[in-house]
Design a protein around this nucleic acid. Structure first.
Lengths: 391, 391
DNA sequence: CATGTTTGTTAGTAAATCTTACGAACTAAA
DNA sequence: TTTAGTTCGTAAGATTTACTAACAAACATG
């Protein structure tokens, strides 16, 4: 028996709807679509936007006039290229009308803050020493830094983004951040009350991976490994950040590497990734090797050995993840003098040799081009995404 | 400077829109929402659906009359409970009006097919020996089996779902399936042309994880490890299947375990997961140990050692994945006499001892309750999802 | 038996897009 | 110089969708 009167095929967009949709939601979607298109390509006419989005010129004009009313979009005169027909009026996001304030709390000893343009460029930055402050004292340091950065803004502030170490839930509550002495600290809500601005708090590695995606031109599926005082990762699948069932996705620092033990870790286990790869561990190991080396050549050799082994250990941890997720792009963030060389070479080689070459042959591993501002810029992506739906 | 005239907050639904939305898309979304609600809870009145979905009774009535016109929903008389007010007319998905045809091509020597109800119950099943057929001959076996199963259906067929081993892309092209001798085989398109029915082809492990999610009551984030002639995995994050950049997500069979080598694998590497854990490897190792054992007690001890070590190896591979994704739920599918015992116990223990207990303390690992029909039922989920937006 | 409650439907309204049509402004060819 | 063709942005009306308001039907309860 074959199908008779079978129901129509449902399109992808309708898969697993979670809520009802009303006409006004259409407007929001299409408004954001236009804004997003304009944000990424810039300098387009209404007709260009209509062609690119599939909406009609009428609808685009209507949406643009709404966006111009909010000072989010501005006209920039007529296109100069000689073409037949009425010349187009060029539009762009009003990139100087708003600024974004962001904080990076992931430094072990220093908190950073910055004012960024809508493009993610750092306009000004400042910082404050943590000086061992913990708990409420640490919160006060953060709040004071935020007030200071906000005072330095020279345009209306679109919102505040904060990248915090530790485990941060969707509501911006820092569930656990040992370095800052926070447990269940409702940072987002407190800062929002304190400033009256929209605030978004996310994990630092998650912020970093968003920055790499939006500003680094990374692909849809991306793993970013952030090496600092600890080791953490941010994961993007299909263009969306993965948070995990308990918001602890990317916490690979205390996963044990290999089957041959390894250095004792502060957490009590032996052979944790962090015990191999953290910046303090690497620097002290290199220092020790250099001190005991008879010649500079010996010192360099020993350093290379230490870094190669650390890279290999990272590769051992990442291989199952790369295989299970079919990842093709891994980005490292951290001190380039440690990571960018034999270490990352050893990591790639290890991953390739431990996974199926046919699937991972195109694997790329590289340093981030975002430098030390990666968390600040990622926090800005969160604000852009939350306030404008753009990124 | 504080925000003045800052744009409104964008809701979650508007994040990263990828396409324009029109009024008719609203209809599709809400229609699917109603159908989904009815599918999952069953036996509700129009007023119940209105309360649950948030839509008005008017809108629900309109959608229901459309769905009844397609024979997807039927009225089942009035509710009997004595309540004030006009008695409600109970509705349900018309669960006998359509059937789903599915195939499971993942058996090493045998292809299976079945007719399923919309609830995922297997109504009838059949199979055919592969007999070493490869390439076009294998396709012919599949097509013949499909014709046979279709002929056995007793109601209009909603669609055809196929779970295939190997790497399957989004268009249902089997990119690579060594056992069947397929490379870039456009199975979905060919079967669709041959039958005139909507066909969905997916990887077997991905089908399995969908079955576990829809029928096994599993959570949003779920890893299913399928142990058979090979070892593969299916991954669900946020209720959505993860396919990977090259559609090879879950291919963990040839990831190397540990840092102490291990058995030589058919792929040329040493210590692949499959070389530890595949069913042929385990059965032959157990057989050999039993043959050489002096007493039954010795044989059992040796068997337990083999299974424990296999479980430990699985845990070593999964620990980084569990840590990176913050997974709390792992399901095993395969021969229970091998997997359900010391093996899975060793896997859990290994994962817990190699990850941060605070995040993975709630980890559950269990056997699937779907048994051998898991791929058939998962393929049905694909059809339900594609044709009705329901699952 | 009157009252209140719940159900499902009918009629009209609001919001969003679309189609069709038009004037404005430009290039290029006759 | 004039004419034709093109492109841009806007205006008016049609279409789709879901909403609000109102109502009849059917039941329980005091």
């Amino acid at each position: 028996m074959t199908a008779t009167g079978a129901p129509r095929m449902i399109q992808d967009r309708a898969l697993r709807p979670t809520a009802k949709v009303l006409p006004e939601h259409i407007r929001l979607n299409n408004r954001t679509l236009v804004l997003q298109t304009l944000y990424r390509t810039g300098l387009q006419s209404r007709a260009d936007l209509a062609r690119e989005t599939g909406l009609t010129r009428v609808t685009v004009s209507d949406l643009i006039s709404e966006l111009m009313g909010e000072n989010l979009v501005i006209e920039l005169g007529q296109r100069q290229e000689p073409r037949p027909g009425k010349p187009a009026t060029l539009l762009d996001i009003n990139r100087v009308a708003f600024q974004i304030v962001t904080l990076d709390l992931s430094g072990h000893t220093r908190l950073r803050g910055a004012v960024l343009s809508l493009d993610g460029a750092v306009l000004s930055s400042s910082g404050v020493e943590l000086s061992g402050a913990r708990g409420e004292a640490a919160y006060e340091k953060v709040a004071a830094l935020l007030r200071q950065v906000i005072a330095g803004a020279t345009a209306p502030i679109l919102g505040v983004g904060v990248g915090s170490p530790g485990i941060v839930d969707r509501a911006g509550v820092v569930r656990n951040a040992p370095n800052l002495g926070w447990r269940d600290e409702p940072l987002q809500a407190r800062l929002q009350d304190a400033t009256g601005l929209p605030v978004r708090v996310v994990n630092d590695a998650n912020a970093a991976v968003l920055a790499e995606h939006s500003f680094g031109g990374a692909d849809h599926d991306l793993l970013l490994v952030k090496v600092g005082h600890g080791v953490g990762a941010g994961l993007l699948m299909g263009g969306r950040a993965i948070f995990g069932e308990r918001f602890a996705a990317g916490e690979i620092g205390h996963v044990v590497v290999g089957t041959d033990d390894g250095p004792l870790c502060a957490c009590g286990k032996s052979g944790c990734l962090e015990a191999w790869l953290s910046v303090p561990r690497l620097t002290s190991a290199i220092q020790a090797a250099t001190d005991t080396a008879a010649t500079p050549e010996q010192a360099e050799l020993a350093t290379d050995q230490i870094l190669t082994e650390a890279g290999r250990r990272l590769g051992i941890i990442l291989a199952p993840v790369v295989g299970a997720l079919n990842l093709l792009e891994i980005v490292l963030s951290g001190p380039p003098e440690l990571l960018d060389g034999v270490l990352s070479a050893a990591t790639v080689e290890t991953i390739l040799s431990r996974t199926m070459a046919t699937e991972t042959g195109e694997l790329t591993l590289r340093m981030t081009a975002q430098g030390e501002d990666i968390v600040l810029r990622g926090a800005a992506v969160m604000v852009l995404s939350a306030q404008l739906g753009v990124s």
